[in-house]
Design a protein around this nucleic acid. Sequence first.
DNA 1: GTATATTTATGAAAACTTTCATTTTGTTTT
DNA 2: AAAACAAAATGAAAGTTTTCATAAATATAC
Lengths: 331, 331
Amino acid sequence: MTVTIYDVAREANVSMATVSRVVNGNPNVKPTTRKKVLATIEQLGYRPNAVARGLASKKTTTIGAIIPDISNIFFSELARGIEDIATMYKYNIILSSSDQNKDKEIELINTMLEKQVDGILFMGGNITEEHIHQFQTSSVPVVLASTYDPTDTIPSVNIDYELAAYEATKTLIEKTNQLPALVGSQADTSVNTLKTNGYLRALKEAGMEPNEDYIYKGSYAYSTGIEAMEHFLKLENRPASVFVMYDEIALGVIHGAQDNGLNVPEDIEVFGFDNIRLASMVRPKLTTVVQPTYDIGAVGMRLLTKYMNDEEVEEKNVVLPHRMEFRDSTK
Amino acid sequence: MTVTIYDVAREANVSMATVSRVVNGNPNVKPTTRKKVLATIEQLGYRPNAVARGLASKKTTTIGAIIPDISNIFFSELARGIEDIATMYKYNIILSSSDQNKDKEIELINTMLEKQVDGILFMGGNITEEHIHQFQTSSVPVVLASTYDPTDTIPSVNIDYELAAYEATKTLIEKTNQLPALVGSQADTSVNTLKTNGYLRALKEAGMEPNEDYIYKGSYAYSTGIEAMEHFLKLENRPASVFVMYDEIALGVIHGAQDNGLNVPEDIEVFGFDNIRLASMVRPKLTTVVQPTYDIGAVGMRLLTKYMNDEEVEEKNVVLPHRMEFRDSTK
DNA sequence: GTATATTTATGAAAACTTTCATTTTGTTTT
DNA sequence: AAAACAAAATGAAAGTTTTCATAAATATAC
């Protein structure tokens, strides 16, 4: 039914090996033979079977990408960075969302290894010892993207989340001379921890004591920002500024303020994190930490290709630059 | 190096066939044998090779998804719908962005067929005869999602875009008694055509003539909305309302109006399309056509599983319901 | 206890391509 | 024309699993 390399070989009066060479562009084929084989391929409508090729060559030209949630605007942009570079290097991507659920993450890693991917790009929440063990015993290279491994064992691409959060918080302190609030996600992920640490470090450096009332953590969602603002407004003294760990939540904070009659930034300043596309699609436009989202994916993928091709890698743990973009949600 | 089914068979003193049966849950294995095999598998760390399995069984439990742009918030939500159902049925997804470029689309279809996917979920721009020919000669089933095939040849999941655009436009006409403007994407895609047709039909029915000055089409981008608004404000008479073919562009329209001192909806009413998450993350919240984005993906994937399992399909071309959600960008 | 049916296990073939060692063909040199 | 060399082509193995026809073992019926 389906045409195989064997059919082509028979029809063109050559061996399978020759057909294989023609298909793969190996130069050791006489031009006339190549022409004949190509014609037969065309005529028979032969299409190489990548599964058989994968079995024979032990290369699938497919990589696995494990991502917390593809419908999340941050990760979908990151995914696009991965994809563009993957396409450039002729790889396909098996993409799966893990919801940062550890069991699902481990399961996905195993499924991908069974499918014989040539490499894995992992974006996750918390890297546990079990993760590291999986990665280290993996038969193919693994690269982390936007995912912090405290042991720096696994190759990775990140920004300095702690530093960025520190800088943003420090800026708010300098602007207002008051204790900034912190709003974020309560999920137990390394990135969350780092951002919180940066916030605390800036406070400490300014001689400020953290105030529990000024820290609000909920789910990773716009609504968390609304809730946070409602919480702050119930307080005797509401904060003069808020550092928000994610832009999407920051939008909620802004709207929570506005919906309660406050003006941003006059009454309260808001500092976001990520610079998702929405950040400048909102009024006032959001001041935020710019993270090169697309590039994290692209550089991560490029790093993975280096490992897959056994190229020399000069920097195993890449830290990309971040910066603060001052827009209209801060004074 | 890697342990194969053969190693397990030898070590457990059974045949490969028996190991295969244990791995695949075939009941024709004596419990004691199963236990022994399982123990050997555990001990040797055997992991089935899905590529070899795919070659032998002619099933890869992988489907291909071709999507215009994974970083687009609409498609990433659709992708999540696909993924959740795919996971439910134990399929993995090879996901690729086509940028609605026809050559790339065709190339991706071929790559995926070479990789022996069990089915293809296609989201694209314009379905040409070449597409249809590809799909019809494909060895595996194909389902279209949010992609209109004028010939209704290929199974598909959509909403009635023409009707939805008609209804939205009609609503604006009834509210304002004036000619609504149209803002959208100029890309030559079937969905764009359908929406434009719906707009024109509502005009015609109200006895209104389309006015070129009131139609602004640009790229699929927030900035197009800003530009459109600037264009309208240069006109002698600016429109009283705008039907926008995509929410993201509609946000641009709203901000373009606001940045020029207009109030929405008092000075100009804005009607969007899609109901992306951002629609209610903006002030004023966007009135829009609600499209069940996630469900289009989920239903599309479910439909594909039916074709892959040779199940009976009662409805080849599924049309999901849409509705209008009135929020604050219309009076 | 034999015959029959059922369950369990097996060996070999099939799936399709790449790879590698080897042979054949063709060209150049002397 | 023989020898040496390079280019082109080949055959067979390897890769790992599923599948199918068949065999062996066990259970059931008479």
